[in-house]
Simulated scan of single mutants.
Amino acid sequence: MSRILFINSVCNGSTGTICKNLYKAAEEAGHTCCIAYGRGDAPEGFNTIKIGNQFDVYLHVLKARLFDASGFGSKKATKNLIKQIEEFKPDVIHLHNIHGYYINIEILFNYLKQHPEIKKIWTLHDCWSFTGHCAHYTYKKCNKWQLYCNGKCPNKKEYPQALFSNIKSNFNKKKEIFSNVENMILITPSKWLKNEVKKSYLKGYPIEAINNGVDTNVFKPTASNIKQQYGLKDKKVILGVSSVWNKMKGLDTFLELSKELDNQYQIVLIGLNKKQIKQLPKNIIGISRTENVQELVKWYSVAYVYFNPTLEDTYPTTNLEAIACGTPVITFNTGGSPESAYADKDKIVTNDINLIIKAIKRCSVNKISDVDSRKMINRYMEEYE
């Protein structure tokens, strides 16, 4: 049996949930596990290592903002982590998001290169690992990363936001740091991201696509009176869900859509902040972010359609959650979103309101295989052996 260390920015959210699910499955299989994380709180019942503290995060954020140095702060915190890794003595280190202002990639990867006996698995949840700055680039249609990031960065103001661009140096450093690591494989949640990685300086590593899944014991068709609670008994609900709503997640598209829909439809958006809710037109119901999963399941289950107009995404979990609850998904042809929507051509639309409305009106339940997270977990268990 192996000793497995997971490293991720958080223990919550989509990537944190994946880490926790893999931890529980690995422990049940007889492995010994630990999660090292940078921000937020540790869940009960898990063996965890907190990397640094809130002050370390603030300093890392400041360095990233001023000098475009995301991933190059947190030196002391990372050196302390290395000591704790040596105490844990892992056979497998499973990296997830190593950006997020909590870890120093140079110190971490120097350690990984010094230990070829440790198996390294790196799950890439976005594109940050092979660009000079950004986590996503499709909206700006930037392909500099395929050869060399230099010049003016079109994503300087996007996460990880910076006042001054340093993409040339970042690209060179990351290329050197992430290259020539023995005994490492890369995992992507979508075929789309796998194909992108193959165009980057990481293409020399073995790369596999393992689709994420959801817990279908939780996300399943569920009866409720939630429509009646909101006075929507006879309405067809068009649902949108996001942890953060902005233009990239499609908020502007929903606002435009609301102007053209007749009164048989009702848009419901979950995950808005208080300011956004106050600014909504009267024909959109806004709900703040909920940690109540059952409430989310009820909304997915009563929705006529789940619409995901994301402009940049890798493999949206919300698509899977909606499908598991029996709700059809319509999405843009963006990144890995059509993959996680299991969408046929009638459910992949362009940012044209008339075409979106047509797709909504003719929508039917998605024909899918299996979105249960157990399928994903079993594939990872094979990698841990």
Rank of each mutant, 00 (worst) to 15 (best):
G240V: 02
I356C: 02
K274T: 14
C127M: 15
A69W: 11
K89V: 08
S258F: 06
L124M: 09
Y380N: 03
R39I: 15
H94C: 02
S165V: 09
N319Q: 03
I35Q: 02
D68L: 04
E176F: 11
F332V: 02
I118E: 06
N195C: 05
R362S: 14
D234M: 04
K249E: 11
F254D: 02
N195G: 04
E295L: 12
L163R: 12
Y37L: 11
W299A: 04
T188N: 06
L147W: 06
E44N: 14
N110Y: 09
L59C: 13
K282F: 09
K247D: 15
N283R: 04
N212L: 14
Q54F: 13
F171P: 01
N8P: 10
G73Q: 03
N333W: 06
T48F: 08
C325N: 09
Y384H: 12
E158A: 13
S2D: 02
A343S: 11
C33G: 09
L112I: 15
I185H: 04
M376V: 02
I287R: 07
T310F: 09
R65P: 00
G286Y: 08
N150H: 14
K24G: 00
F171V: 04
I284G: 05
C34N: 11
W192I: 03
K119N: 11
L272H: 03
L202N: 05
K194S: 14
C134W: 01
L124G: 01
I18P: 05
E312T: 15
G132M: 00
T290W: 06
K50F: 09
P116Q: 12
I82A: 01
K274H: 12
K361T: 09
G231C: 06
N378T: 06
T15F: 04
G326S: 07
I7G: 00
N150M: 11
S364V: 10
Y205F: 13
N110M: 07
N180F: 12
K89W: 00
V237H: 03
I357P: 08
G250N: 01
N217D: 15
